[in-house]
Design a protein around this nucleic acid. Sequence first.
DNA 1: TTGATATACAACCATTTGGTTTCATATTAG
DNA 2: CTAATATGAAACCAAATGGTTGTATATCAA
Lengths: 107, 107
Amino acid sequence: MDLSNDEVDRIFRALADATRRDIVRRTLTEEASISDLAHRYDMSFAAVQKHITVLEGAGLVTKHRKGRERRIRGNPEALRTAQTLLNAYERIWQGRIDRLDAVLADN
Amino acid sequence: MDLSNDEVDRIFRALADATRRDIVRRTLTEEASISDLAHRYDMSFAAVQKHITVLEGAGLVTKHRKGRERRIRGNPEALRTAQTLLNAYERIWQGRIDRLDAVLADN
DNA sequence: TTGATATACAACCATTTGGTTTCATATTAG
DNA sequence: CTAATATGAAACCAAATGGTTGTATATCAA
């Protein structure tokens, strides 16, 4: 795994917004174009586009071109990264480990 | 569990900062005063105090008075809340559930 | 070819965030 | 009592965030 603090920051930051969590949820089961998604929220196309950029930067979704569309797909890998992190904190609390080296890189 | 979006926002937001994650990590195994913690980071006492306020607002740590000190203790309960959330997304991806009602409140 | 649709991107704005310094107050130690 | 320590809280600041509108470009449909 081997994560930098910045990567972890980006993942949790991206998850700290209800619209973005909803985009992840939807695209985990079914990919969607940006306009598909933009229809669903009460904000501009550009705002949704920005949310998707944040999610992409955190690795929580991927984009791929499909004609004139960009299809967005949720990436369960990044979610598992966050889960692993939280599990590590849980193990710290249980006293079974005292460091995060197994998960975090040294940079 | 029954969480509002705002509560979830606050938890993930609080976790999206390396200093705050470190405070949680330390105080999960051993409580500490604010000055104890402030010593450890290269920033002002007030800055650390603010990070602790953010963590407390998210329920990730609790404060309790001990003489002139305030002891900070990590709260594994809030961590488990985040874990539960992420597990729900995992189950969505696996097609085993398609909603988050079990975890999220309707407000 | 032309018009409609899908996306990208820039400029702008208000609010929030993460830091600072400073001052006030409470508590403990001598 | 007095000095030192621990905390709280305000005022301030730069940068980031989350939204907007407007414009440009690419692709599809008729």
